[in-house]
Design a protein around this nucleic acid. Structure first.
Length: 423
DNA sequence: TGTCCACAGGAAATACGGGGGT
DNA sequence: ACCCCCGTATTTCCTGTGGACA
């Protein structure tokens, strides 16, 4: 390894560190990622955001909805509707926190619980989570009846007489048996115990109430508050607050914040994603040793896109990885649609080479649909008349993305394909 | 106009795994 | 240790179908 001898190593290192410090962009990394902030810090950021009148309208509506509590009245249930990243959860948590403090001050007994269903789960798991939050049961994987869980929850709060606000985040994530879950919350629970139950639902689907059992629905008196996607002005405010806390403002070029807010508001209106773009741009700029420029933002956008796919497939089950790989490889080069039959053949042969149990076609077909939902591929049912009816598969990923997907999946298989094949 | 391909995609059956009760 | 229960994954079985072709 060749070493430069002109300058003493110590001096060199010192000089490098100095320039690095001068060009530091990220001053406080934690403020670029909510996961790393504790509740108090999150609320502090939120307060600043609310103080510049973002989400003003929603907070007003929330206040008027909950106002009856202070007249010893019983407000109906509430449903917050809006896309992901529009601040439903944080706003509500913040609001509940304030409400709690206010109730304490006025001696009104009030409890609130946040049931987070942000990852899809069946009724059983949802109830189990709730039971855990209430300290009514431990975490079960399986093996206890739904009824048992419900009774335990009831027992736990039977003697509580004040307001009980249950914040059910992302209700529509209760898969399959949403009806029985709601039936318990809306019908059985209020009848079984004396407390004043107040449920707040959250959903990103406007029509989440549409296909629930009408018998449950009739009990579900609900008030709705809509959370619109953030517009560019709001996003700019939100980003500015983050920048003040986390970044070296001198290293951000004119127009960058505007660009990020514009792109975000146009494509999703999601504040979390906007902050992610900012954070990624800062990382890239720091790596390249330049200020954050417009070009850097573009790079960040691309990189986020790619990482999204790679991360998703990395954490996916082996079968799904195999399916995607066989589709990508049987696609190689041409961009003409392929029928699902051809894909199944190549999947089958791939499975035998890596010694993976190959699924039957019906199951494979479901895997393919899943890949479509995630956006890796597009499928379309078409009929070739005499030559049958099938789904055509198209891969529309940028080549670099599909290349890195290919590499990642192969790596995943190399790691455990070797020892298996030896057995 | 009817046939018939090559699947789609729903429903039910079966397999499996893991945990609670006793 | 044994059995039973529940949730999930996969298989098996099945009916349905758009349109090129004869």
């Amino acid at each position: 390894m060749p070493v430069e001898v002109q300058m003493r190593v110590e001096d060199k290192i010192e000089k490098q560190i100095d320039t690095l410090l001068q060009n530091t962009i990220i001053l406080n990394r934690r403020y670029l990622d909510d996961e790393q902030l504790d509740r108090g810090e999150q609320f502090k950021v939120l307060k600043e955001i609310f103080d510049v009148n973002v989400r003003d309208k929603e907070i007003k509506e929330l206040s008027s909805h909950f106002a009856p509590i202070f007249r010893d009245d019983h407000p109906i249930h509430l449903s917050l509707i809006g896309k992901t990243g529009t601040g439903k959860t944080v706003t509500m948590l913040y609001f509940l926190n304030m409400l709690h403090a206010l109730c304490e001050k006025r001696n009104i007994p009030m409890r609130h619980v946040h049931l987070d269903l942000s990852t899809p789960k069946p009724c059983f798991r949802a109830l189990n989570d709730l039971a855990c939050l209430l300290d009514a049961a431990k975490r079960y994987k399986k093996g206890i009846s739904l009824d048992e869980l419900m009774s335990r929850i009831e027992d736990k709060i039977r003697n509580y007489k004040g307001y009980f606000i249950l914040f059910v985040d992302e209700v529509d994530h209760v898969r399959r048996d949403l009806d029985s879950f709601l039936k318990f919350l809306v019908r059985r629970l209020p009848q079984a115990i004396p407390l004043k139950l107040l449920i707040v639902f959250t959903s990103n689907k406007l029509n989440w109430q549409e296909n629930i059992d009408p018998r449950v629905k009739s009990f579900l008196k609900i008030n709705e508050i809509l959370f619109d996607p953030y517009n560019a002005v709001d996003l700019k405010k939100i980003l500015s607050i983050r920048i003040k806390k986390a970044l070296n403002r001198k290293m951000i070029q004119q127009g960058v914040v505007e660009k990020i807010s514009a792109v975000s508001s146009r494509t999703h209106g999601d504040a979390r994603k906007a902050v992610e773009i900012l954070s990624k741009s800062a990382q890239i700029a720091e790596r390249e040793g330049t200020p954050i420029t417009m070009d850097i933002v573009d790079m960040a956008l691309e990189e986020i896109e790619r990482d999204k796919y790679v991360a998703m497939i990395k954490s996916a089950p082996k079968q799904l990885q195999a399916a995607l790989l066989s589709i990508i490889s049987s696609f190689s080069g041409s961009s003409k649609p392929i029928s699902i039959g051809t894909c199944y053949e190549s999947y089958h042969s791939f499975c035998s080479t890596v010694n993976l149990h190959a699924l039957k076609q019906r199951a494979f077909s479901d895997l393919v649909s899943e890949l479509d939902v995630y956006g890796f591929i597009q499928i379309r049912v078409i009929s070739k008349g005499r030559y049958g009816r099938s789904r055509d598969i198209t891969v529309n990923l940028p080549t670099e993305v599909s290349d890195s997907l290919n590499k990642v999946i192969l790596m995943e298989f190399d790691l455990d394909a070797v020892p298996k094949s030896r057995i």
